[in-house]
Amino acid sequence: MQSSITFSLHTNKIINYKPKFIQLSLRSNIQPKPILSLPSTSKFNKIYTSKVAPLHCGISSNSYSSNEERGVRKWIELGSEAISTAFPLWVTIGCVLGLLRPSSFNWVTPKLCTVGLGVIMLGMGMSLTLDDLRSALFMPKEVISGFVLQYSVMPISAFLVSKLLNLPSHYAAGLILVGCCPGGTASNIVTYLARGNVALSVIMTAASTLSAVIMTPFLTAKLAGKYVAVDAAGLLMSTLQVVLLPVLAGAFLVKYFQPFVKFISPLMPPMAVATAAMLSGNAIAQSSSSILMSSGQVILASCLLHASGFFFGYILARMLGLDVSSSRTISIEVGMQNAALGVVLATNHFGDPLTTVPCAVSSVCHSIFGSILAGIWRFSVPAEIKD
């Protein structure tokens, strides 16, 4: 006699439930009755329950610690962004403190300034890759445009402003000297905070600094009637130590030490802000008495000079067909000069000590203007960076 046996297993309705026994029934033409009882550990049970995906409940300790780390990092990034956005405030506080309490900056030494700038440039290098720097070298239009605007807009603006305001000869010479100086290292910090093209900024700073050996003496002699000697070897070493080598080291870390870069990168913008505020305050502290004794004419002249540099640097770059990020970078490079170099040159080559006053005031003006621009532009990311 043949019997038909029917098994009905609804394992898809049982999730993570293992009964102690599974009851199976045979149904045939004869009266049905239970014939078999298998424990859940049998091969049969393993075969059919293995098709049911396990249900994971709860939170593992690894995921919890990972979420906690992400939360801490998010708070650090928010704090970094808040400090960076208030860049103009910190620079202003540093300048006011340097003017009213110059002794507050007695602890700032030239070596400390150099180390601080080097650390900041290292941080900026961490925001780049070696490919970014390589691509900046192959941007001839941007580099040449920036170079031409650097050594045309500022020297001409300094000459015209000194004539417009009828500055005394010592103030006029100091203002023109500042206009003929190369781009300052602080421009790289501001470009970094303003979401500009940092690689282009570094290349432009290096190019204008190296060419300053020829351009600064030539333009100063033509416009101010006074020849100044520039220490070519000193400028070259300074540029290598403070700009190029730290940036290359940062890009190297990005390529080979990603975990370290990921950990330290949120801390770099606040460090850049603190360094810029320290340098600005120290520059004012060094010449605070001369600044207080001078008339507001020098402050007005310096403000007009740097406002002209930022404005025409951006407008002319856009007229030349450059993108927004590169135009911002060129605006900052043109508007921010190496005022510290101007102070050194004025002290060594001009007989009147008042010649250094426009250089000291200039360092404050370009820092405040640059920080304001960085605060504004930081909220507007250029399309080419988004892409």
Rank of each mutant, 00 (worst) to 15 (best):
I5W: 11
T6H: 13
S8E: 13
S8C: 08
H10A: 10
K13S: 09
I14Y: 03
K20Q: 14
S28I: 08
S28T: 14
P32S: 09
P32E: 15
P39M: 03
P39T: 00
S40D: 07
K46D: 10
Y48D: 00
T49S: 10
S50N: 13
V52R: 01
I59G: 10
N62D: 12
S66P: 05
R70P: 01
K74R: 11
A82P: 12
I83K: 01
I83P: 05
A86L: 06
T92F: 04
T92N: 01
T92A: 07
I93S: 05
I93A: 08
G94Q: 08
C95K: 07
G98Q: 05
L99N: 07
P102W: 14
N106D: 15
K111E: 15
K111H: 15
V115A: 12
G116D: 11
L117Y: 10
I120P: 01
G123Y: 00
T129R: 09
D131K: 07
L137P: 00
K141N: 01
E142P: 01
V143N: 05
V148A: 06
L149Y: 03
Q150H: 05
A158N: 10
V161D: 05
K163P: 12
L167M: 10
H170N: 13
H170K: 07
H170D: 15
A172T: 10
A173W: 14
L175M: 06
I176L: 09
L177I: 13
C180I: 02
C180M: 02
C181A: 11
C181D: 07
T185M: 14
S187L: 07
N188Y: 09
N188T: 02
Y192F: 11
A194C: 06
V198D: 01
L200A: 08
V202C: 04
S208P: 02
S208M: 03
S211N: 11
S211I: 14
A212L: 11
A212T: 04
I214V: 11
P217R: 06
P217T: 08
F218M: 13
K222M: 14
K222D: 14
K226F: 12
K226Q: 12
T239D: 02
V242K: 03
V243N: 00
P246M: 05
L248R: 06
A249H: 02
Y256V: 12
F257G: 10
Q258T: 15
I264D: 08
S265H: 04
P270A: 08
M271P: 10
M271G: 14
M271K: 01
A272F: 06
A272V: 07
V273Y: 10
M278N: 11
N282E: 09
A283G: 08
S287M: 07
S288G: 11
S289L: 13
S289C: 13
S294K: 00
S294G: 03
V298A: 02
V298D: 07
I299C: 11
A301F: 11
S302A: 14
L304H: 01
H306M: 02
F311Y: 10
G313F: 02
R318E: 09
V324Q: 01
S327D: 05
I330D: 00
V334S: 02
M336I: 03
M336C: 05
A340F: 14
L341N: 12
T347D: 14
T347S: 15
G351E: 15
T355L: 09
A360D: 06
S362R: 03
S362C: 13
S363L: 14
I372L: 05
G375R: 07
G375E: 06
G375I: 08
I376A: 04
R378E: 05
F379I: 12
S380D: 04
I385T: 06
K386N: 11
D387T: 12
